[in-house]
């Protein structure tokens, strides 16, 4: 998934909405979730979209539209939307929203829900794998770690992936990305 925007229809080219795809409870579910509590305060002014740096260069990513769709109950459309993953989390929308909706956090909730459905871009799977193996978000090459000494830098503190795994036990996302062969390691508590 390198060009998420290309697989979602551009603005105005979406399929017509069918009554059967509307989930009227979706917005109330969102109201109970940490980050999207204030979604119903959005009055569709469009400040988020007009100030969004990504929207300037994308044909499909529009935070206001995503929020409106969620308010209307178009749950599957929101969560299946590839454009969800284009948000750069710059928080400009959050800081400028006149209704204090915390737009970037709402988008983050959408992404978390999409993840639960199994929609995870590869880049996040790679980072999760690195976290499990090293405790860091990237696999820092041994050469880099060894080079620190010659650069006059102190040794890199350990990532302690075992402790990371222990604390993430029972987290749905973590269980999902864990590779099956890693399971036998967590026998004792």
């Amino acid at each position: 998934m390198t060009e998420a925007a290309s697989t979602s229809p551009p603005q105005g080219k979406e399929q017509p909405i069918k009554a059967s795809e509307i989930d009227p409870k979706f917005k109330y579910e969102l109201q109970k979730m940490h980050g999207s509590e204030k979604i119903l305060k959005c009055f569709q002014c469009g400040t988020c979209t007009s100030d969004c740096p990504v929207a300037r260069f994308s044909d499909s990513y529009r935070p206001r539209t995503l929020i409106h769709m969620a308010q209307l109950g178009l749950k599957d459309r929101v969560l299946n939307s590839d454009t969800l993953w284009l948000c750069a989390a710059c928080f400009t929308c959050t800081d400028r929203c006149p209704q204090d909706v915390e737009v970037a956090s709402v988008i983050r909730v959408f992404r978390n829900l999409a993840t639960e459905k199994g929609c995870i871009p590869q880049v996040f799977k790679d980072q999760a794998q690195s976290l499990i193996e090293t405790g860091y978000a990237y696999k820092i090459p041994d050469l880099r770690i060894k080079k620190r000494e010659s650069q006059g830098l102190p040794p890199l503190p350990k990532g302690n992936p075992d402790a990371v795994k222990k604390t993430l036990k029972g987290v749905a996302f973590f269980d999902r990305v864990q590779k099956p062969q890693g399971e036998q390691a967590s026998g004792k508590q």
Binding site: A89, A128, G135, P157, F173
Partner: peptide, 25 residues
């Protein structure tokens, strides 16, 4: 730091809970 792990930020988009745990750790 005696040891550290990812601050959590890269995982916020996929799992807010993971981010909170990693940062709190």
């Amino acid at each position: 730091m005696p040891e550290f792990n990812c601050c959590g930020l890269p995982f916020d988009p996929v799992s807010h809970e993971t981010m909170l745990i990693l940062a709190a750790k």
